[in-house]
Design a protein around this nucleic acid. Sequence first.
RNA 1: GUACCUGUAGCUCAGCAGGAUAGAGCAUUCGCCUUCUAAGCGAACGGUCGGGGGUUCGAAUCCCUCCAGGUACGCCA
Length: 566
Amino acid sequence: MDYKQIVAEDLSAQLSEHLTTEEIYNLLEKPKNEEHGDLAFPTFQLAKVFRKNPAEIASDISGDFSSEIVSSVNVVGPYLNFYLDKGEVSAEVLGEIISKKQHYGNSDVGAGKNIPLDMSSPNIAKPMSMGHLRSTVIGNALANIVEKLGYEPIKINYLGDWGTQFGRLITAYKLWGEEEKVRANPIAELNELYVRFHEELEEEPELESVGREWFRKLEAGDEEATELWRWFREESLNEFHTIYERLGITFDSMDGESFFNDKMDEVVDILIEKELLVEDQGAQVVRLDQYDLQPALIKKQDGATLYITRDIAAALYRKRTYDFEQALYVVGQDQIYHFNQLKAVLRTMGYDWEEDIHHVIFGLISIDGAKMSTRRGKVVLLEDVLNEAVERALTQINEKNPNLANKEEVAEKVGVGAVVFHDLQHDRRNDFNFNLDDIVQFEGETGPYVQYTRARALSILKKANVDADYFKDNNKFSLTDDYSWSIVKLIQSFNGVLARAHREFEPSIVAKHALSVAQAFNKFYANVRVLDDNPEKDSRLALVYAVALMLEEDLRILGVQAPDEM
RNA sequence: GUACCUGUAGCUCAGCAGGAUAGAGCAUUCGCCUUCUAAGCGAACGGUCGGGGGUUCGAAUCCCUCCAGGUACGCCA
């Protein structure tokens, strides 16, 4: 139920001559200070039409207010402050979440519409870094968000399994590689070869053309090149898989860049047919002057294709295959220019659906102020961070809850959860400097704090010996104290949270919701006794249950697992 | 040089289509475990919202400009 709408309609009865219900709805705001009520209506804008000062208008309107859901209306200067009926609203909100459980907040606005998400995209033969974590968890959370809104998310792991780099890697392997070493430790060994290639390149610039030649062969289907490439890819995927498993993330498609190798001729053909492809300095380009962009390089001098060529092919393929409503590309902000070019090329090709392509940018992670770079060996490996986080979580458990059963399992959830939550709680555009102590933090606004709050809630339910069935036959849980009321309002706001998170492609809005619910519950917990015998015990238990459901759903959307005890 | 992103408390950040005294967390100091998990709760301390103009009844929020940091700008992805 949308209480704002009800209040807006009621106000509209008096103001319809001057403002539409929708305008009133948009003017209604949530007061920053809870003492100012649950909804506020500022009257400044009416001052001109009424030819009165705002404060006077406010007191004039307040008299004729009739909505049942509103318990009182206070006039404070130019503001009309509405106080909702806590008993009524809490009964309704708690009843709804308890009956819907994990379906609370679901809607069907996106029914029948597809949203492919280009995400994660690790590079074959390179270790997954913290940067890949961002793309992976942001993409995963967005997929969960749009799914709640009824859309069909298609999580595509656009693997970096093609490109000139493989020519280099093959060159390096043939020069210095050993099969046994690669088999024993594939990614580490291959990455070392790749780094060595770039080191030796300083001394021997001609290596570059050897690398290019190998990639050309690979594109042409040369047997030896293909065999090596396939092997590198397979070994790498095995290693990636263990990390995805730890993160609890699956994909609907593993169509990486190589998948489009045989689909690029078509792109070139279409560009030629539309007379968009021109030669420039020996390369084939599409001019984008009308968009104030540099030309997009479609084919290099040696005829090999480039990143954008594959992305054009991928976009065409995805449009045909999924007929998407939106296509999200969860890729770092350093590729803004590339996506501007991509969209511009699609536009010049006459595809107006390029408007549905959204580059969901995220900020870059630096180390001591410098950008991460695999080539220079300057990376923070995701696996190391996860392991360290889990280890610290285990230490914490031994200290705080030494009798806990299955400590390792809980430590895994808490440690990994801390890392994932940390990545999702801030505006995705923020750059940040890598700091392990910040990431593996368990107190305050953190993932473990939310997990812990949920565990406390579950603990109460366990002590009270109640489960979901307990609440089945009783739909009237009514609470009027301020601690409960804060929680009820937050639960009620969940629909808006989801809508906004989708509109802005911003998982942090969900993370902040989780934190707010946890904070409100911990205040409640410190001030309100649930298990004592009193008339409100059942309603309080219902609230505790609702909080557990809400936190679990927030965390699930974010891709954070929640242990029942910790 | 051009474009985009960012600039709010010592640190990390909120502040959602402008609205009532600018909010959290961390750190520091001090309280609260004979009560449902103290990974918690409370209090104190801490800010010329990068600077300057402008629009507005009202600007951290919108516009202009300057400053600082980051990123990207044809044969990497």
